[in-house]
Nucleic acid binder design. Structure first.
Length: 446
DNA sequence: CTGGGGAAGGGGCCC
DNA sequence: AGGGCCCCTTCCCCA
């Protein structure tokens, strides 16, 4: 009876809105006028609550340029129907608008939508790397009450008994810092049981706060770390498995990476719709435009920086190291990794840490890994070194080194490789092998 | 158990 | 807009 009553009441209000009956509030979005009921907006949005609390109602209550009329239509329809019409094309802007309007429930639906779309939720489940899109991408359009209910069920399942966003959330003043708002959200997120099994989910990252960004307890922060742990764990497993198993794993990883990259591209495609945040909305007193991450409260000055930042949410790693298959979010990180790990660029003796030169620092190969040792240490250890010119990046071919043992990180055993790899290195040249951004779909497996 | 070093990863910003 | 550099933080490994 209660539900029926609520549903009926909402229908009545929506009908009144459509007929512009008793509408006492006007919202101007990029020149388009929306009519609504003040009390409904007040009850649904922290932003409107703040706005409408500030004294006598003006004729036009709010003007927005931060999101499009289409986006506000989606938001308003949700307020009056409980149905959120999400698609891959609008989810980013809806989420950003919801963040602006302080509508946590909408944010939650959006993040679930994105999470499902990105298929990150399964990323760290059980066996680290068994990613298959078919398992999770069940989230289609959220339009329709049934879908909406599914979302809610999905959310409730994730929360496993934790309460829905408390009304108290809306009582926060807009003048509060972002951390206040999102911090609260983060608290809720932390309480989610899903966070334990799925620390990498963007849903868990959503509430991350700028100030807490480097907090090790911040679920957002765990993403790259767990990613790394995953990588290392996988590497260690590799050591005990056959090369064929390695290739199978690589296939799976790259398959997942491909899907992730595609989804990320979808996100990036909608980037122009990611609204800038006016200065007063963040800590910058300068009212300049900033770009807000839809997954967390982080804001950046440039869209390119936002795109870069988004990779830490999407898990996209477009730069694979051809020597060890480790993937990186940035070319510079790949280059740095490659030079350090596979090219022995550091002119320091690995053993005694003394300074060496290109000439005095003998290069030692350990799997795909290379480093330098001084003459004294190399004698002590009793291993040979490879000629210096084998390190020329232009003639280096790290991928071939995979055949040695496919191992990048040390697996505990110190096998001092005596490698005369000039021939191997010369087999396939091209520095672009090192720094090439790989489209996974075309990526040639080794 | 602890501290140091290496590696990775993220942000700001310049070109 | 992308590339690149610098700086900082964090994590992991090892002595």
């Amino acid at each position: 009876i209660t539900v029926a009553h609520q549903t009926n009441l909402l229908k009545q209000l929506n009908q009144q809105r459509r007929q512009e009956l008793f509408c006492d509030c006007s919202v101007l979005v990029e020149g388009q006028l929306f009519r609504a009921h003040r009390n409904v907006l007040f009850a649904s949005s922290g932003y409107f609550r703040m706005l409408l609390s500030q004294g006598p109602p003006p004729s036009v209550n709010a003007t927005f340029d931060a999101f499009s009329p289409e986006t506000f239509t989606v938001i308003l329809d949700f307020i009056y129907s409980g149905q959120l019409d999400l698609s891959s094309h609008n989810v980013i802007e809806v989420m950003s608008a919801a963040s602006y309007l302080q509508m946590n429930n909408v944010i939650s639906y959006c993040k679930n939508f994105i999470k499902s779309s990105l298929d990150i939720s399964a990323k760290d489940e059980d066996s680290d790397r068994c990613l298959s899109l078919s398992e999770t991408c069940s989230f289609t359009s959220a339009a329709g009450e049934e879908s909406s209910e599914q979302q809610q069920q999905q959310q409730q399942q994730q929360q496993q008994g934790s309460v829905s966003p408390p009304p108290a959330l809306w009582t926060r003043d807009n003048s509060r810092s972002q951390s206040g708002f999102m911090g609260k959200d983060a608290d809720q997120e932390v309480s989610l049981s899903s966070i334990k099994t799925n620390p990498n989910s963007p849903a868990n990252e959503l509430g991350a706060d700028v100030d807490d960004y480097h907090d090790p307890h911040d679920p957002l922060y765990t993403l790259p770390r767990s990613e790394r742990r995953r990588s290392r764990g996988g590497t260690k497993r590799k050591a005990s498995n056959s090369i064929r198993a390695n290739q199978q794993e690589d296939l799976e990883i790259q398959d997942a990476s491909t899907q992730k990259a595609e989804k990320a591209e979808e996100l990036y495609a909608s980037l122009p719709q990611i609204v800038g945040v006016i200065g007063h909305f963040n800590k910058d007193p300068n009212p300049s435009m900033r770009f807000k991450c839809p997954f967390c409260t982080h804001t950046v000055k440039r869209k390119a920086d936002l795109k870069r930042h988004l990779r830490c949410h999407t898990g996209e790693r477009p730069y694979p190291c051809q020597a060890c298959n480790k993937r990186f979010t940035r070319l510079e990180h790949l280059r740095s990794h490659f030079e350090t790990i596979h090219q022995a660029r550091k002119l320091v003796c690995r053993k005694c840490k003394c300074q060496v030169t290109e000439e005095t620092g003998h290069v030692v190969c350990e799997g795909t890994r290379r480093y330098r040792m001084c003459a004294v240490c190399i004698q002590e250890v009793g291993c040979d070194s490879i000629p210096m010119d084998g390190l020329d990046p232009a003639s280096d071919e790290p991928a071939l080194l995979l055949g040695v043992d496919g191992e990048e990180e040390g697996d505990g055993k110190r096998t001092w490789m005596v490698t005369d790899d000039d021939d191997e290195l010369a087999e396939d040249s091209g520095a672009d092998l090192i720094i090439q951004q790989v489209d996974d779909s075309d990526e040639e497996l080794q």
